[in-house]
Amino acid sequence: MSSTTPAMVPVIDFSNQNLKPGSPEWDSVKSQVREALEEYGCFEALFDPILELRKVVFGALQEAFDLPLETKKLCVSDKPFRGYLNPRSGLFQSLSMDDACVAENIERCVTNTLWPQGNISFSKTLASFTQLASELEKIILKMILESFGLEKYMDELIDSTNYHLRVMKYEKPKTKDSTHDAHCDSNMMTLLYQNEVWLNGRLPSPTHRVMMKGNEDRYSLGLFTRPRGGYVIKVPNELVDDNNPILFKPHDHEEYLKFYYSEITQAAVKSGGYISRLKAYCSV
């Protein structure tokens, strides 16, 4: 591939009904997952059950973001990257909620604030998406752990996971092409997981950006599978040896997010992005 040829992110199909652990189909997809993550740090996943929700999900997002700004700003949180965010640029806005697999959690964190009279269909729609996306995430996680011989950690990681859902709207570009820091380039659903620390740098975590084109607003969902506050992320002993020294110190991800969000840290490593801040916080 020449230096002027755009990299094509691999597309991996997870919709096969025969995709069961130990089957030839499973082993084939598992190899594709590891190769894609080692080479690109990401891939496009095809998963029919999620695609079937596409129309109703994006309808729910438009309904929420069409509410008055004063109403959306009532969604606040004392934790970083939660509640309603509306940067000064005005081009991007988002709503975030924790434990989004359960409709009642979405109801409590967001829906009851946006619609005091109630809107259970909004909560159920987003919870349905999160449940299906978390199902896909567990398949991918199991494949990654198997490929590194770390299957014994599966239950521990699932039990420690907070399914943090962020729904987003990007305003249509004011110029021909505009680039925003974001997580997808269309009306899309994105699953994000930070492997850099836990796998001791074996799989890269690339920076996500968006190139906005066209004359339409863009809506997207990002499901962040984050460790719960209080859970200490540490590199498994199996991934450390003389040729692969430990790269990161054990840490609490919620404490790291506070560090990431601080003005001092942003000024110190503003050109380095997420990974630079991560290394500043917990590298050995």
Score class of each variant (00 low, 15 high):
Met1Gly: 15
Pro6Ile: 02
Val9Ala: 08
Ile12Thr: 03
Asp13Leu: 08
Asp13Gly: 00
Phe14Asp: 02
Gln17Tyr: 11
Gln17Pro: 10
Lys20Asp: 12
Pro21Val: 00
Pro21Ala: 02
Ser28Gln: 13
Val29Cys: 02
Lys30Tyr: 03
Ser31Val: 08
Arg34Ser: 11
Leu37Asn: 06
Leu37Gly: 04
Cys42His: 06
Glu44Pro: 00
Ala45Lys: 04
Ile50Pro: 00
Leu51Pro: 10
Arg54His: 14
Arg54Cys: 12
Arg54Asn: 13
Lys55Tyr: 10
Val56His: 14
Phe58Gly: 06
Ala60Glu: 01
Leu61Val: 04
Leu61Ser: 07
Leu67Thr: 12
Thr71Gly: 05
Lys73Pro: 01
Val76Asn: 06
Lys79His: 08
Leu85Val: 08
Pro87Asn: 02
Pro87Trp: 06
Arg88Ile: 10
Gly90Pro: 14
Gln93Phe: 06
Ser94Cys: 13
Met97Lys: 07
Met97Ile: 07
Met97Phe: 00
Met97Tyr: 00
Cys101Pro: 02
Glu107Gly: 05
Thr113Ile: 14
Leu114Gly: 03
Leu114Glu: 00
Trp115Thr: 09
Gly118Gln: 05
Phe122Tyr: 11
Phe122Leu: 13
Lys124Glu: 13
Thr125Asp: 04
Ala127Lys: 02
Ser128Asn: 11
Ser128His: 03
Ser128Glu: 10
Ser128Cys: 14
Thr130Asn: 08
Ala133Lys: 04
Glu137Cys: 03
Ile139Cys: 10
Lys142Asn: 09
Ser147Gln: 11
Ser147Leu: 00
Ser147Asp: 14
Phe148Glu: 14
Gly149Thr: 03
Leu150Phe: 09
Tyr153Val: 04
Asp155Glu: 15
Leu157Ala: 05
Ile158Val: 15
His164Ile: 03
Leu165Cys: 09
Leu165Pro: 00
Val167Arg: 00
Glu171Ile: 05
Lys172Ile: 03
Pro173Ile: 03
Ser178Ala: 08
His180Ala: 04
His180Leu: 11
Asp185Asn: 14
Ser186Met: 10
Met188Tyr: 06
Met188Leu: 11
Thr190Phe: 00
Leu192Glu: 05
Tyr193Asn: 15
Asn195Gly: 10
Leu199Pro: 05
Asn200Gly: 01
Asn200Phe: 12
Gly201Thr: 03
Arg202Leu: 15
Pro204Thr: 09
Pro204Ala: 09
Thr207Cys: 07
Thr207Ser: 13
Val210Asn: 12
Arg218Asp: 01
Tyr219Ala: 02
Leu221His: 04
Thr225Ala: 13
Arg228Asn: 11
Gly229Gln: 11
Gly229Phe: 02
Gly229Arg: 12
Gly229Asp: 14
Asn237Tyr: 10
Asp241Met: 00
Asn243Tyr: 10
Asn244Tyr: 15
Leu247Met: 12
Phe248Val: 00
Lys249Met: 08
Pro250Gln: 05
Glu254Leu: 12
Tyr256Arg: 07
Lys258Val: 08
Lys258Asp: 10
Lys258Pro: 01
Tyr260Gln: 13
Glu263Gln: 15
Val269Trp: 08
Gly272Ser: 11
Tyr274Met: 09
Tyr274Val: 06
Arg277Thr: 12
Leu278Gly: 04
Lys279Tyr: 01
Val284His: 15
